[in-house]
């Protein structure tokens, strides 16, 4: 017997399946096609079956089913919470870029108004620069500075939200390297599912693609770390053990991502053991 979307065909004839697109989709999921014995069906069979009137009717019914399946899958994909997390992190990184860009341009402009400013601003942090420039009397300029400040506030708020969401969606990864960096890893991988399928060695160099490819093409030294460098235990480690810390941390993150994806709960025993392993890797030899 061969099962098709509109019914079953066997030696005795054809048995059409009647139902809504939802019923058809559920039945389709349960069909286990053996590709070795599979023969694609001719649409005329569906007409002979009494399922469709003609070619146009056959295609229309098939399209209805396919639209139903695709829309259901898309909805399922976009409502998973790690996808929102990914969008939030990307927005956060985009905000950083925009704020820096605007601040730099504003400084250039401000310098033409106050030529003596250029020496002072080297020693100031980005935020302080904004505070200084805020006092400028030019209306248009002051408004732009106010907007930059507002963007900074939005950024801070968004960062808090990202960390909070990461703590609930990816609790184990967040406990290991902090919510923000963990969320960035998910963003780079595309989704939590994809992150959970990566081996530790890939997680270790996520975000260092250009270095990785130049390593593979030309044989330059391989990158030791990508996004996980942002974690303090990696960037604070001594140079000679940094690679080892990154490797151990990445391996544990791979496991943490799988726990987050499949179990969705915090595993304290695993975390304690992992933290200890990472700390041990950071101690000199």
């Amino acid at each position: 017997m061969q099962s098709y979307w509109f019914g079953d065909i066997d030696g005795e004839g054809c048995h059409p399946f009647v139902g809504s697109p939802a019923d058809q989709a559920a039945r389709l999921e349960s069909i286990d096609t053996d590709m070795a014995a599979y023969i694609p069906v001719a649409w005329e069979d569906a007409v002979r079956c009494g399922f469709a009137k003609d070619r146009g009717d056959y295609l229309q019914k098939l399209r209805n089913l396919c639209f139903f399946i695709a829309e259901a899958k898309i909805a399922e994909h976009f409502t998973s919470r790690d996808i929102e997390l990914v969008q939030m992190v990307r927005m956060l990184d985009e905000l950083d870029d925009v704020i820096n860009l605007l601040t730099e341009r504003a400084v250039e402009w401000y310098r033409t108004k106050n030529p003596s400013f250029s020496r002072k601003y080297r020693s100031l942090s980005g935020r302080r620069v904004i505070q200084v420039m805020k006092k400028e009397r030019d209306r248009a300029f002051a408004e732009i500075i106010a907007d930059i400040e507002k963007l900074q506030e939005s950024r801070t708020r968004l960062m808090r939200d990202v960390t909070a969401l990461a703590d609930t969606v990816i609790p184990n990864c967040s406990a290991l390297i902090g919510g923000l960096v963990a969320a960035r890893l998910v963003s780079r991988a595309g989704s939590l599912e994809e992150l959970s399928r990566l081996p530790g060695s890939s997680i270790q160099v996520l975000g260092a693609q250009s270095a990785l490819f130049s390593h593979m093409r030309t044989g330059s030294p391989s990158p030791k770390h990508g996004i996980i460098f942002q974690h303090r235990r990696v960037h604070n480690a001594d140079r000679d053990v940094r690679g080892r810390v990154a490797r151990v941390l990445a391996a544990k993150l791979g496991i943490a991502a799988r726990i987050d994806y499949f179990r969705q709960e915090i595993d304290q025993d695993f975390l304690n053991a992992s933290q200890e392993a990472v700390d041990r890797a950071g101690e000199g030899t």
């Binding site: 099962s3 098709y4 979307w5 389709l28 069909i31 286990d32 096609t33 053996d34 590709m35 599979y38 694609p40 069906v41 001719a42 649409w43 098939l62 089913l65 396919c66």
Partner: peptide
């Protein structure tokens, strides 16, 4: 094998 039942 997943979409085989849909095809001609």
């Amino acid at each position: 094998e997943w979409y085989a039942p849909l095809l001609e």
